[in-house]
Amino acid sequence: MKSESKLEKILNAGHFAVTGECGPPRGADPEAIRKKAKYLKGMVDMVNVTDNQTAVVRMSSWAGCLILIQEGLEPNYQMVCRDRNRLAMQSDILGAYSLGIKNILCLSGDHQRFGDHPGAKNVYDIDSMNLINMVKTMRDEGRFLSGAEITVPPKMFIGAAANPFGDPFEFRVHRLAKKVAAGADFIQTQCIYNMDKFKKWMAQARDMGLTEKVYILAGVTPMKSLGMARYMKNMVPGMDVPDEIIKRLRGVDKKRQADEGIRICVEQIQELREIDGVAGIHLMAIEWEQRVPEIVESAGLLPRPEV
């Protein structure tokens, strides 16, 4: 084992993993996280805590992770390159690990242009690829990016994101390969709606032998409404929502769109499970954590394994 992560144990044992997500509140109330934790407990193997997602200020990811630990959940510390330089990143990683955080997701981060502080200076001292490699060097070689020795190295399970739907499509699998080479242990993908394109990307990943080297968790997000589907399709960069999804949601009564969204999500999970090389799913129920138990149960993913 590379780390002390529960997710690593589960994946290592050959179980189909289920990870969830928890967006911290825009305030200092820990109850907001505890409330979401209750819905997720026993339903998922690990919970990502977002880091100023969409460049909007929220409670810090590491603090959210600690609250989840108090609630008996395994957190995944999301870290973006937008807000910190290499010094802050490394010290936060040491601090997080010292308090029991054993997973990290290395991200570039959304540009601040669309966030709540568009006038902020963005850092991007290093990029996500370099962040992955930095955490790996800290863990496996016990060295900082500078080369200096670390007294107690952080044994974290290293995650990275991949968006199979970004352009240029043919290069995407190469970027995945770079993340694997940089040291990613697991990948959580962007929300998948275009199943054909995802399967094509997975085939490329298998051909390059990447699925042997990294655990790929396929991202899913249930649609709450037709409006949300339209927004995801048109407004979110790098999101690929096919017209069939829109059509299906439009086809049902407005009051039943949420249920239809859940049904679509469960079908997607079942389809993803059949794809060779998909090691689990990453369920991002955005501000909809209360529906997670229902989705996980309907998809036949309960009970979660004990390791």
Binding site: S108, D127, G166
Partner: peptide, 10 residues
Amino acid sequence: KSLLNGPCGG
């Protein structure tokens, strides 16, 4: 984002 290992997902 001044990425040296792009393109990002966006």
